[in-house]
Design a protein around this nucleic acid. Sequence first.
DNA 1: CGAATATACGGAGCATCGCTCCGCTTGGCA
DNA 2: TGCCAAGCGGAGCGATGCTCCGTATATTCG
Lengths: 212, 212
Amino acid sequence: MSSADTSQAGGDRRKRSDARRNAQTLLDAAAAVFARAGVDAPVRDIAAEAGVGMGTVYRHFPTRPDLVVAVFRHQVDALAATPTGASGEDAETPYDVLRSWVARFTDFLVTKHGLAEALHSDQAGFESLHAEFVDRLVPVLGQLLQASVDAGQIRADVRPLDLMIAIGNLCIGAGTFPGYRARHMVDVLLAGLAHGAPASTDGDEPRARTGS
Amino acid sequence: MSSADTSQAGGDRRKRSDARRNAQTLLDAAAAVFARAGVDAPVRDIAAEAGVGMGTVYRHFPTRPDLVVAVFRHQVDALAATPTGASGEDAETPYDVLRSWVARFTDFLVTKHGLAEALHSDQAGFESLHAEFVDRLVPVLGQLLQASVDAGQIRADVRPLDLMIAIGNLCIGAGTFPGYRARHMVDVLLAGLAHGAPASTDGDEPRARTGS
DNA sequence: CGAATATACGGAGCATCGCTCCGCTTGGCA
DNA sequence: TGCCAAGCGGAGCGATGCTCCGTATATTCG
């Protein structure tokens, strides 16, 4: 599912050698172009960088987002592969683990110029890119969240999807707006996560605490 | 400044009558189309809705964002015109005032389909749209923030621009992603604002509190 | 009231996208 | 070596933001 079964660069042994090579070349070229011009870079540029034609790009990656997904697959995998205890430290509290995972996620989004932006643009079927992130990362975030809730360290009224999208959103413009510090605002959000539950802020119930 | 001196619909008495009328027609048509198809709607559609040609649109509003700015000008004005005490209630604490202003800002962004998204897309000179919002609203937010800081109700390490962009970002996808509740996450962010300062969360200093 | 002229209009057209289509090239195999 | 399917390249399509300029008309002046 999620549209990115796109032959994964050099994995497929049944393809012709030039096809396999081109897929990898394309991946490298895309990574280079994305780093240089952001993930919004025209597909034509990527084709040119790789020294192939438009057709070749689209044969390997049927749609632009598929290419983006493929380029960042490794890093999403890394993020998805840390259910608990990033570095094996079991002494950390669940909330600490949550914090460090979120920090890594934030770094990832902030580092890749325009990735966070692309995650949300409704244009050109970028929803598959979004779906990829949601499918892979929401479960992990769900575990981290639940553990912190169970430990009584955070409020229980924030769902994994809410938090994931919120973090992704906060990272938008990180490299674009000079004065905006995305990481800092993610920190503030996490602080709010930790304190909303025990005492509701100011004695003033937020509003519309819909659903669980 | 900010590129939106664009004749303001019907204000200019020196223009030809048909020009004045068309400007207003365009504004109405744009509002209708934005409501129906989001602020990303093609300029051609707006021209068609208004029953005028492309040239007319661009003569009145030199660039797409200028049109968007003009359409939402009234509401931005309303937001900008409330330095303190939304409804004259002086008994509220500064933090309450901040909260209610932010709630109105959030409602505004969430209501207009795609406005929050458009605020951040780097494409097609949308930075003028962003500039408009920043110029008008950051000062107000600055006052609200400072008052709350002075009252000791919120942490002092969040600047107006940070908060404004953060809120705008959190509203992205409000109407697009079914499960995402933007308002709720804005609440969480505000909760973090209130609690980060006094006691740093868990005894564990967040991380990299880069330059106060 | 009727002509003159600046002002405004309309929409064809340009450049840039994402993506498709199809004739040509080339790798892999007998 | 020769065959043919897998693969390739890039012209081309439709959409979009924005420009340009010949045409229509509101306004003014005799």
